[in-house]
Design a protein around this nucleic acid. Structure first.
Lengths: 222, 222
DNA sequence: ACCTGAACACCGTTCAAGT
DNA sequence: ACCTGAACACCGTTCAAGT
């Protein structure tokens, strides 16, 4: 048997597990990310992970926390509209910095220190702007969900676009799937707008939506 | 061996599989829903399912489609604000009618006939209201994501509430988890608003958010 | 204190074979 | 045409045992 050339093993710990898991996440995606594969990459038996971590759920939470720790925050001297705009861009950027982050954020419930810190900052911002206490969590939730939802869809559609178009051609196939011979008059608007659903300027669309929210919030603030 | 009392097996087909899967979903939740368990409930071997269905992903898509088929649509004679309000309530109601629907909708990409039909109707509504073609898919996406995000959080928090409170007591534990001795001054706003993050009137909060969106959209329509 | 061997109870999917 | 037996390549998790 060949002796394994193993450069003196650094001892395992949470940080190293998280690091490796994050790297692997970007290589293979969330669906393929398994405890076995993480252990393998660390040149360690799977069971070893469980000495440093409770279970996969906890690890996912730590991953999400680690990712959200790199959020950048807008200068509080700016206007609240500008701050919200920059916050949104920053959050979106963080979510796009790794693969499948939206699913990761949605799956892990327990928020660690870093995610709580994000909440704290957003709450503080909204509170200082003048939203009544009861509405602050509501508004924060709206904003967070907007970004998560948007980026989730952005990533999905970008992937589809790479794999070669969901547009008109495939669209007409899709409803024949269920009802053998559907009149195309069933989906006039979808068909008419098909060209707009595919490629687009994501940054611009993101800004549009965030602006809708901001305008709506401004009304509430009056 | 006891003879199994099996009331003359109805032949398997997609509809029956979907029906059973949906039932099982409500009993055990999406995470526990497996091909094996579905087959079991149908008194059939797991492999049999694959004669009627391509894979689990397809089944999840069919499930989501089936669920969204029970959407009710507002009368088109109403004002657009009223229509959007009713649409939102209807969508939320549909999502709350089964367990883990938000995860289900987020996981299944391919939309079948019924989900496409929902898109068509929403597009048509927005288009008739006066949104320019390019913005119609954007606005539809914002609205859809709002409802999905809201209900997702609603379900998560309701579950936490049942299992006994995430409030102040446990909160202070949570950041000690990462930094051994955190001054509670790190999260003043979160702590101050803790009572508002827990229990609340969900319907009212939902309406609030939808109203923010509507107001923002009204600005865009001018 | 830290890691492993071995086992447990599962997954989703395929495919030749039976009826 | 419809279903199954048997196998494949995986999962996450536990726990007594080794060092």
């Amino acid at each position: 048997m060949a002796r394994k050339t193993r450069t003196t093993n650094t001892p395992l710990d949470q940080t190293r597990i998280i690091q490796t898991a994050l790297q692997l996440l970007d290589e293979i995606g969330l669906k393929e990310l398994s405890m076995n594969k993480i252990a393998n990459k660390l040149q360690v038996k799977t069971a070893s992970l469980y000495y440093h971590i409770q279970d996969k759920d906890e690890l996912m939470g730590l991953l999400a926390d680690r990712i959200s720790s790199s959020m950048e925050w807008p200068d509080s001297s700016l206007s609240w509209r500008e701050q919200l705009g920059l916050w949104g861009e920053s959050f979106r950027k963080v979510l796009l910095s790794h693969r499948d982050t939206v699913d990761l954020f949605n799956s892990s419930i327990a928020s660690g220190y870093d995610r709580l810190k994000q909440v704290e900052r957003l709450y503080a911002l909204l509170s200082s702007v003048g939203f009544p206490d009861q509405q602050v969590p509501w508004v924060a939730s709206i904003l967070k969900n907007y970004v998560l939802g948007f980026v989730g869809e952005e990533v999905r559609l970008r992937l589809n676009a790479e794999q070669g178009a969901i547009s008109n051609a495939e669209l007409s196939e899709r409803y024949n799937q269920y009802y053998s011979q559907l009149p195309s008059e069933e989906f006039p608007t979808v068909i008419r707008l098909a060209s707009y659903t595919t490629n687009s300027d994501w940054a611009k669309e993101f800004e549009f939506g965030l602006n809708v929210l901001t305008e709506g919030l401004a009304v509430k603030l009056q």
